[in-house]
């Protein structure tokens, strides 16, 4: 007795191909979700207790990043400024603005402003700001055009493949040390990033790919 019609041969072969296709698609969907802003929390504005605008302070007034983030050249953490740093100017400018009342209250009562953290690497990753800044990785390279952010947001995925992109070949990104805090950095005329980057990697003694992609460099 013949249960299956002859066309079942085609269906069975077709279903194998379709199954593979479904599996591959599923893999693609999972990977895409993993890399999406929804998972990495990149490109999302985060409300803060004070609506501090980097766009105004960096882009408008031209204050150097290190005026507030004083520890970035010497420490793992770039440093969140104490309220006193705000008061340097805001004891006089906008000193009666209701927007800045939390800042004044913080200074008066000696209680810290509780900012919402924007960039948070997993705890199993060791990251140090000072070595990156010293080796010519500009603020902008990881944090994006901060001078155009009315509210701070995370520009990069902070995922491992993103770290490795640079660790495998830093010459794509490094810039001269005196341009670290420049926003909108452009390679000088007459040279290219590939050319200048390779020179800087050599000049700054940036380690080779074997070391830079070794597990224990970041997972220590």
């Amino acid at each position: 007795m013949q249960v299956f019609p002859k066309s079942a041969n085609y269906w069975s072969r077709g279903s194998i191909i379709a199954g593979l296709f479904v599996l591959a698609s599923l893999g693609w969907v999972i990977l895409t979700i993993q890399r999406s802003d929804f998972v990495t929390q990149a490109n999302q504005f985060i409300e803060q207790p004070v609506q501090f605008s980097h766009q105004h302070h960096v882009g408008g007034i031209g204050i150097d990043c290190r005026y507030c983030h004083t520890a970035v050249e010497v420490s793992t953490s770039a440093g969140i400024p104490p309220t006193k740093t705000c008061i340097n100017c805001h004891s006089q400018i906008w000193s009666t603005s209701p927007y800045l009342e939390p800042v004044r209250a913080s200074f008066r009562d000696d209680t810290p402003l509780q900012w919402i953290r924007v960039h948070d690497l997993p705890d199993f990753v060791y990251f140090n700001h000072s070595i990156h800044v010293k080796q010519g990785v500009g603020c902008e390279t990881c944090h994006g055009r901060v001078d155009r952010m009315p509210l701070m947001l995370q520009k990069s995925s902070l995922q491992m493949e993103w770290c490795l992109d640079c660790h495998r070949n830093p010459s794509q990104y490094v810039r001269p040390r005196d341009q670290i805090t420049t926003m909108g950095y452009q390679v000088p005329d007459g040279t290219t990033q590939a050319e200048l980057g390779a020179q800087l990697v050599k000049a700054y003694n940036i380690a080779g790919v074997e070391h830079m992609t070794s597990c224990s460099v970041c997972h220590r």
């Binding site: 766009q55 105004h56 882009g59 408008g60 007034i61 031209g62 001078d147 420049t182 926003m183 909108g184 452009q186």
Partner: peptide, 8 residues
């Protein structure tokens, strides 16, 4: 320097 901060 080419970059001058724009007004905001």
């Amino acid at each position: 320097k080419a970059e001058t901060p724009a007004a905001h």
